[in-house]
Amino acid sequence: MPPGPPTVRGKGGRRGRLRTAVIAAITVVALGIVVWGVSTRSSQTKAAEANAERVLFSAACPPVLALGQQDECVKEAQRLLRQRGADIGVDGIFGPETRLRVTAFQVFAGLTPNGVVADPTKKALYESKARLDTWSPEKVRGRIHEVFAEAPADAVAIADCQSFLDPLYILPNTDGTRNWGLFQISDLRLQELGGTPSEALDPEWNIQAAKKLWSRDRDFHHWQCARALPQASPSQS
């Protein structure tokens, strides 16, 4: 039997296969877009639901909580700060104490330490693992006595005058700079010592830094605190 005529693969076959491949690719891309859209909407929905349960993000609270405000929104911020170890009253009044704790929390949470509670700080108050636990005045006093063995009483008096023996004490200056921690190490001194605000709020680091400053000439002239040491010459710490 003679062989049949050869099969001819024409342009129609190639076009059909190409069309099928294109349709398949378009389908995959379309499915990917649909899945991405569903996932994005799901994430947005979850975020919205989470914020709906967070008082600070509710319509009842202003975009920014700041000094002088008095309401339930401030009380919520204070409650969250207490949950993170802050020694703070929950009275709904945004006073100097609340601003101090907010600023310290911002330092430990890696935020700009501006002392007000806007969205980044609100979010961190609910989600960050930053803690504000620190030493008691008794522990501070004992450690200063150990480090400043040559002048323990004077050193404690200086720290008490500077920060009330509060390791998280932060004092803003009129020029926008700040003094940090137990011995109120200024931004200038902090830069000189190669430290950071977070380190300056660590009581051990702060005490050791103060001892280093004191050891240069073995007096407390770096600190302005006439109430503690009337004989000390005034100067910025």
Rank of each mutant, 00 (worst) to 15 (best):
Q70A: 15
H221F: 08
R41E: 03
P230I: 14
F108W: 13
L182T: 07
V74I: 13
T196I: 00
G85A: 07
V156W: 09
L111A: 01
L31R: 12
K211W: 15
V117P: 08
C73T: 01
A159E: 00
T121Y: 06
N51P: 01
Q78D: 06
K11Q: 12
V29M: 09
Q231M: 02
R189N: 13
A59M: 05
G12M: 07
S128C: 02
G176T: 12
P137Q: 00
S42W: 14
A200M: 14
D219A: 07
H222I: 02
H221D: 14
L168T: 06
W223F: 04
D166A: 09
R14E: 10
A228D: 02
T177K: 12
V74S: 04
T98H: 04
S237Q: 01
L18D: 06
I185P: 04
T27E: 01
D160G: 07
V34Q: 12
V35W: 05
H145S: 13
V64K: 06
E138N: 04
T7A: 08
L67Y: 14
L132T: 12
R79E: 07
I23P: 00
I23L: 15
I88S: 02
Q191W: 05
A50D: 15
E76F: 02
Y169S: 13
K212R: 13
G4V: 13
A149E: 09
E76L: 04
R143L: 08
A130S: 10
V116I: 09
V116P: 00
D219L: 04
R216M: 09
S136W: 01
R54H: 08
E204P: 00
L182P: 11
F108Y: 14
P203W: 09
D87E: 10
C73Y: 10
A118M: 03
V8R: 15
G13Y: 14
A60P: 00
S42P: 09
K75D: 10
A159S: 09
I26R: 08
S39T: 09
G142N: 14
A77M: 14
E204I: 12
L171M: 09
R101G: 05
G10K: 06
I185F: 07
D166K: 13
E127Y: 06
A209P: 08
D202Y: 12
P234V: 13
G194P: 01
R99M: 12
P3F: 08
L190G: 15
A118P: 03
V156P: 11
A228P: 11
P113V: 10
P230H: 04
P3K: 08
G142L: 06
K11F: 04
L65A: 04
R99L: 10
T45R: 10
K123R: 14
P2N: 03
V156G: 08
G37M: 13
P96I: 03
R84L: 11
T103V: 05
A25H: 07
R216C: 02
N179G: 08
R216K: 15
Y169R: 06
K75T: 11
E138S: 13
V90C: 11
Q184P: 10
T121M: 13
E138C: 01
K75I: 03
